[in-house]
Computed example of a mutant assay.
Amino acid sequence: MTDETNETAEQNQNTAAEAADFEPLTVTYERLRHSDNPAELSEFARTPLPDRADQAAFSRATALLEAVAGNPHTPVADRVFLAQTMPFPNVLVKLSADPDPSVRQAVAANGDDKNWLVGRLTKDPVPEVRDTALKNKRTSWKMRLEGAQNPEVDAQTLEFLGSLGTDLEEGAPKVLASMVRRAVALNPNTSSQMLAKLANDPSDEVRHAAAGRQ
């Protein structure tokens, strides 16, 4: 048998062995979804993704991260890591419903969120999650307005919302930003310092609302 023939036979054997070891996506997904092995789940959560050029491997890895993200046996630190770093909606949706508030808060701060997802988190029952979501640039103006009207939102978040269109996001739509600042002026949790600032707002409606509170 020639060297070339031997090499071909060896390559065929390696390919056959790899195929035998390869686990179908659905099987691996279910295994990870139900795994109670924190070390295995942590290792998978922290493993760098394949290069996007290898589309098959990349798609497989991102799909499997969804299973890891949704598994309560994945350590909280690793779920927070995924919530902070992943741009993939399928993974972030899983993490946005996580029972641990620190994980949901990390999702709320993720700049890769879809606006509907971060909008959902502006309604979270935990104030820290809700307030973080309201500060995310992905949050829609509708959600920002509702947040500015919410009497449970804290003064620090109201200071952020009350600066939109002036000190922050100067290119923001004037009418929408003005509506949010006016709502901040009317919110009972707005600090006296913020009210004083809004009393000098460039918008007449905002100034009048702030003056009525002083």
Rank of each mutant, 00 (worst) to 15 (best):
residue 193 Q to K: 11
residue 110 N to A: 09
residue 19 A to P: 01
residue 160 F to Q: 00
residue 5 T to L: 14
residue 123 K to M: 10
residue 134 L to C: 06
residue 137 K to L: 14
residue 54 D to T: 10
residue 210 A to Q: 08
residue 120 R to F: 12
residue 121 L to V: 05
residue 211 A to Q: 15
residue 195 L to K: 06
residue 136 N to I: 06
residue 187 N to H: 07
residue 208 H to T: 09
residue 36 D to G: 03
residue 97 A to H: 15
residue 90 N to E: 12
residue 116 W to L: 08
residue 25 L to I: 08
residue 205 E to Y: 11
residue 181 R to Y: 11
residue 135 K to Y: 09
residue 54 D to W: 10
residue 174 K to P: 00
residue 180 V to G: 03
residue 65 L to N: 00
residue 96 S to N: 02
residue 68 V to I: 04
residue 52 R to Q: 05
residue 15 T to A: 12
residue 22 F to D: 07
residue 170 E to V: 11
residue 59 S to L: 13
residue 22 F to A: 10
residue 95 L to K: 02
residue 33 R to M: 11
residue 92 L to I: 01
residue 141 W to H: 01
residue 174 K to C: 01
residue 95 L to A: 02
residue 62 T to R: 07
residue 89 P to R: 00
residue 124 D to N: 11
residue 191 S to W: 09
residue 19 A to I: 07
residue 125 P to W: 13
residue 5 T to Y: 13
residue 59 S to N: 14
residue 69 A to P: 00
residue 34 H to R: 09
residue 30 E to I: 02
residue 11 Q to S: 04
residue 209 A to S: 03
residue 61 A to W: 06
residue 103 V to N: 02
residue 152 E to T: 12
residue 21 D to R: 13
residue 55 Q to R: 04
residue 186 L to C: 00
residue 194 M to Q: 12
residue 120 R to E: 10
residue 40 E to A: 01
residue 166 T to L: 09
residue 97 A to R: 15
residue 14 N to Q: 12
residue 120 R to N: 05
residue 9 A to T: 08
residue 79 R to D: 01
residue 119 G to S: 14
residue 211 A to E: 15
residue 100 D to F: 12
residue 29 Y to Q: 03
residue 37 N to T: 03
residue 12 N to V: 09
residue 11 Q to W: 14
residue 174 K to A: 11
residue 163 S to D: 09
residue 84 Q to C: 05
residue 166 T to H: 05
residue 154 D to G: 10
residue 76 V to L: 15
residue 29 Y to N: 00
residue 47 T to E: 10
residue 185 A to Q: 08
residue 108 A to G: 01
residue 82 L to C: 04
residue 149 Q to N: 04
residue 148 A to I: 07
residue 101 P to F: 11
residue 2 T to P: 14
residue 189 N to R: 09
residue 198 L to T: 05
residue 21 D to F: 14
residue 19 A to R: 13
residue 146 E to N: 04
residue 7 E to S: 09
residue 16 A to D: 05
residue 37 N to A: 02
residue 71 N to K: 06
residue 92 L to W: 09
residue 14 N to P: 00
residue 112 D to K: 12
residue 50 P to H: 10
residue 10 E to T: 04
residue 26 T to A: 12
residue 181 R to V: 02
residue 71 N to I: 06
residue 54 D to S: 04
residue 76 V to M: 14
residue 19 A to E: 13
residue 162 G to T: 01
residue 138 R to S: 10
residue 56 A to M: 13
residue 26 T to G: 03
residue 61 A to I: 02
residue 105 Q to C: 05
residue 163 S to F: 09
residue 30 E to W: 15
residue 100 D to C: 07
residue 80 V to G: 01
residue 139 T to F: 14
